[in-house]
Design a protein around this nucleic acid. Structure first.
Lengths: 145, 145
DNA sequence: TAGTCGATGACAACATGCTGACATAAACAT
DNA sequence: ATGTTTATGTCAGCATGTTGTCATCGACTA
């Protein structure tokens, strides 16, 4: 017999909590040698994926976090010469955040670890299941947004 | 054309991060009137689901967190008369954490909010998709454990 | 029985996230 | 153009999580 949707859903919620912390631990382990943490990993990923450049509140919107939390991370990463603030032609106050050369190097090194990790962890999972799960998660995200 | 599994997987990871923070926000909103927070919500849920009683490190194992983090939450919840420490026949040092009468009341009130929330958010989602997603997430949890 | 090893409690330092509050710049509407 | 609303930077306080450390209790082993 199938469990009720209610119980299934609560189970799913707890499992997302659990998976989240495990993924953070994975991220920390992967990025440790690069002097990163999972929070910086998320920020550097968001910036690398953007073509046009992002402002601090823009990164926060992509990651679904408060702009204050992102600002604190980017400030430290600028100090560490991973990111730089560039004047924004579209907005005088809100500068663009871009990767420095060192930041790009770190990102490339990161991908050398991250890509095999991603491939390794999905090799025994059918692509249809990945798509179904992603679709459901996106649906929930939209619902709670 | 299908995206590559690597990209799909990284997308899934970012989406789990995003959903996690949204679920925390949902939890905070639901429990606010009860004087709870999402951290206490998780702890009270773990205790309520256990039949035999749990120790602090036991709760930590269920939630996949450090025992120190759980200890801090339970200490405050005991102060607030939601939980109580009971002597553990199996272990002199490690006491059992149980719900007080007030804690049980709060849990029951909680369910009056939580259950409709769970039902409402799944009414347009086929049960098969929930099962597929949960199965995948569990698989990943097992992999990273 | 004695010794060793693992689990637990307790405390500290730190990273990350949130919200609130305030001033100011930017965008918009009239 | 002017007034209003929104977005941003900044600072502060707090909740939650991590790891590390140390002492001690319990369990296991020789």
């Amino acid at each position: 017999m199938h469990s009720s949707k209610r119980v299934l859903f609560l189970d799913l919620v707890l499992s997302v909590f659990r998976l989240n912390s495990l993924l953070i631990a994975e991220g920390d382990a992967m990025t440790e040698k690069l002097g990163l943490t999972h929070a910086r990993w998320k920020v550097i990923g968001a910036i690398a994926l953007s073509s046009a450049g992002l402002t601090v509140p823009g990164i926060a919107r992509v990651l679904g976090q408060s702009r204050q939390a992102v600002q604190r991370i980017t400030d430290v990463m600028v100090e560490d010469d991973l990111l730089q603030y560039q004047s924004n032609p579209k907005h005088k106050r809100s500068v663009l955040v871009t990767l420095t050369d060192k930041g790009k190097e770190v990102y490339n090194t990161l991908r050398e670890v991250q890509d095999p990790w991603a491939i390794e962890n999905t090799e025994d999972i059918p692509i249809e299941e990945l798509e179904t799960a992603l679709r459901l998660i996106r649906r929930l995200i939209k619902k709670f947004n």
